[in-house]
Amino acid sequence: MRDSLLWVYEGQTEFWALALAARAGQLSSSQALDILALDAAAAQSRPGRTCSTV
């Protein structure tokens, strides 16, 4: 697979882990959304994302 579309696989893993945790009652919906927002903010602020794709 040579890392092609790695961001899709890894991103889906993170996203669905949170969605499933909320559906199973491990997290509340707002907790899941907060974690997602934190992940998005962290990614947004990382300069590396502008010089290399994953």
Partner: peptide, 13 residues
């Protein structure tokens, strides 16, 4: 119970 629910939800997904 919550861990097993997670398994059920995963299979449903």
């Amino acid at each position: 119970v919550r861990m097993r629910a997670m398994v059920d939800e995963t299979e449903r997904l």
